[in-house]
Amino acid sequence: MARGPKLTKQQQRQVDRRRRVGQTPVGDDLLTGVVVTHHGHDLLIEDDVHKLHRARARRTVGRLATGDRIRWRHDDHGHVVVEQREERVNLLVRPDAYGKKKLMAANIDQVIIVTAPLPWMNPEVVERTLVAVLALPARPLILLNKADLLDKTAPADLEEIETTLALWQGLGFPVIWTSVKTGRGMDELETALAGRTSLMIGLSGVGKTSLTREITPLAGDAAIGEISAFNREGTHTTRASTLYRFADMPGGLIDAPGLRDFPLEQVPEEVLDAGFPEIAEAAAYCRFNDCRHMNEPGCAVLAAVDEGKILARRLRQYQELLKTD
């Protein structure tokens, strides 16, 4: 049987190393992996068998986000170097307070918007986030965590929370109520996570990290320690988006730093309609096809607001987002 060319000692060491960890090269001796988290220029990546490696990327690779699929190699000194970034399925970007774009995560199947009775997130922030998720596109999931605190919530606040969640659910957005303390909704959440790469976002203090550690047993072992040390996190602080794998099912969960708002830039009108389906449905009966639902005669949307079928604040937000298109 014909044999291939003889390998150098360095090439043979690389082949032997891959055999030990069960990896497969992808052209030009590159290995595949995923970005788990980053701190400045330092990366933590995951190989094909979910082993973690500290890495650096070539400048030509550009900015990387958690969830990016990459190709890497060991250099002559044994250091892990990211050589390429594969094409992204999607990328969630959020402008910061200074207008600079922050890469939150890439290749996301689902975004979990986590709220809690305290601190309760402004509904308009949730709704802007829903539109951003639909624009990716990805599946949105609204989660009310710390449901055990509802018994201690003031009646007026409780009514607002229940009414708002019922509104979103009635519009077709899935809603789950969870409590790490009582176990409520955890099985339902795990079912929603299985087989998907999900990003979890919300205000600081809503319990995202506690949820992550409850759902992913791997986040309670050496892996979480290595990731926390790499990110220089506190016990209850998430400083950078971080990908965690599940122990007994495919998929993964990305825990992101807390956010207070989700400003949007250009939003396609069809995506906006998906985020405000009650307005899109009523708009089909407007007198004019190009009705902007401001003060046009025969506007079915304004009539629906007057009749209490559409919330005035929802229409106001729709109009504001429409202007950014």
Results as ranks from 00 to 15, higher is better:
R88H: 04
S204Q: 02
K146F: 12
T60E: 13
Q110S: 06
Q317V: 06
S241N: 10
A65H: 03
F230M: 04
L189S: 01
A280F: 04
E188H: 11
E46G: 12
P123M: 12
N295H: 14
E270C: 02
K152P: 00
D148C: 10
R17W: 12
M121D: 04
S179I: 02
R20T: 09
V131I: 12
N145R: 02
H53N: 00
T242N: 08
R94A: 07
Q12Y: 01
A106S: 15
G67L: 06
T60V: 13
G22R: 14
L143K: 06
V206T: 12
L199N: 07
R316F: 04
R232A: 13
M104F: 09
I227N: 02
A166G: 02
P174Q: 11
A166I: 00
A154W: 00
G172P: 04
K146M: 14
H38Q: 15
D221F: 05
G308N: 07
R18K: 00
D96G: 06
P137R: 09
L118R: 11
G183V: 06
Q23T: 14
G33F: 13
T237Y: 09
L259A: 02
A194C: 07
T60Q: 13
L193N: 07
I215A: 10
T197H: 08
K323R: 09
R196W: 15
W168E: 05
F262P: 02
P137E: 08
G4A: 12
A312M: 01
L315P: 03
V126N: 04
L193I: 08
Y318S: 04
T237V: 14
R63V: 05
H50P: 00
P137G: 15
S210F: 02
L259I: 15
R19I: 09
V81I: 15
N145S: 14
R313P: 00
D148P: 05
E214Q: 14
T242S: 14
P268C: 05
A284D: 07
V89L: 09
T8V: 04
R85D: 00
V111D: 03
F262Q: 03
L7H: 06
R54L: 05
L7E: 02
G78M: 03
G22A: 09
G202Y: 06
V89I: 07
P5D: 09
R239G: 10
D221H: 09
R245C: 05
R13W: 03
A156S: 13
V267P: 08
Q10G: 01
E162F: 10
R56Q: 10
T209D: 05
L272Q: 03
G78R: 11
L171S: 03
G185H: 03
A240G: 12
T238Q: 08
E46K: 12
E86W: 00
T324M: 13
G205M: 09
D148N: 11
R54N: 11
D42G: 12
L189E: 07
N231R: 14
S198P: 10
A222I: 11
R58L: 12
T153R: 10
G62S: 03
V81T: 05
H38C: 12
N289V: 13
A97S: 07
P268V: 00
I176K: 13
L165S: 06
K9N: 11
S198E: 03
V125Q: 01
A274P: 01
E159H: 12
